[in-house]
């Protein structure tokens, strides 16, 4: 195909940008010049990214592009790997979470996480949900009961499990387990929810249920989701960041990314023409 030539067009152009006034949203996370090394490997290179309140921000990119690493930096889970070094700053609600005096335990009560594989504890459904509140010192049975019900309702799984709260969470299906994990995360009343490929181990119907849930949750929470599934990013996110080799290639509203990406590498990736 022939490469498009630029045409001199009169500025009588109607574009979406002119039609829809951009809404000013609060910023939750402000990443400024973040670099990260795994030993000698430069995993993240000068990341600058703002994450907005009550939005779903999707992070896409090929395997090993650093998208999961970035997500895990947002709640400092990345520190579980001892050889990791970081520089630059990530401001969460205007405080630098990478500074030494920010306790990870505090950060993680504001920022919940849902993992790739459903990982409920081998305990009852009730104890799974009550785990977070309990470690933060809530002992009152009545309050715990309320939190459990509210969280399970929030994760749209209350009706499915309300009669068997004392059964082991491992008796549930994979999709239900993942929603239990989301409920468990809601129980710490987080501000932000990080999701690391939350549907990659689920069947298509369970996947759609979780996606539906994510759409509901963004009314109350800000969500950052890493996904391999580009259609999923297109369906559920407001903004999409495309990572490649540890860099952010493009970060824009999802509608723009999937209709008219500005970088050729983004286009090649989302239309499945990598390499």
């Amino acid at each position: 195909m022939v490469i498009a030539k630029e045409a001199p067009v009169k500025e009588t152009i109607v574009t979406r940008d002119n039609v829809i006034a951009p809404v000013q949203k609060n910023i939750v996370y402000e990443t400024r010049g973040l670099d990260l090394w795994y030993g000698e490997h430069h995993g993240l290179k000068n990341i600058n990214l703002d994450i907005y309140e009550n939005e779903v921000t999707a992070i896409i990119g090929p395997s090993g592009c650093g998208k999961s690493t970035y997500l895990k930096t947002l709640n400092r889970m990345v520190e579980l790997v001892p050889i990791v070094r970081t520089s630059g700053e990530i401001l969460y609600r205007e405080r630098n979470i990478l500074s030494k005096d920010y306790a990870v335990e505090e950060l993680r009560t504001h920022v919940g996480m849902v993992f790739q594989k459903p990982n409920p504890f081998p305990k009852s459904i009730y104890d799974n949900i009550a785990y977070g509140p309990r470690i933060h010192g809530i002992k009152n049975k009545k309050i715990l009961d309320e939190i459990v019900e509210k969280s399970l309702r929030g994760a749209a799984i209350w009706d499915e499990v309300k009669d068997r709260l004392n059964q082991n969470a491992y008796g549930l299906s994979g999709g239900q387990q993942q929603r239990i994990c989301i409920a468990r995360c809601l129980a710490i009343e987080p501000d932000v929810i990080l999701m690391d490929e939350p549907t990659s181990a689920l069947d298509p119907i369970s996947t759609l249920k979780v996606e539906e849930l994510v759409q509901e949750l963004k009314e109350k929470y800000s969500i950052v989701i890493v996904t391999h599934n580009m259609q999923q990013a297109a369906r559920i996110s407001n903004r999409t960041a495309f990572f490649l080799n540890g860099e952010v290639i493009e970060y824009d509203e999802t509608d723009n990314i999937f209709q008219n990406p500005s970088d050729q590498r983004t286009e090649d990736y989302i239309s499945g023409r990598f390499g």
């Binding site: 579980l80 335990e105 990982n119 785990y131 977070g132 468990r184």
Partner: peptide, 11 residues
Amino acid sequence: EQREASYGMGA
């Protein structure tokens, strides 16, 4: 994954 789940909630 079990430990991560726990750490992830601020334990």
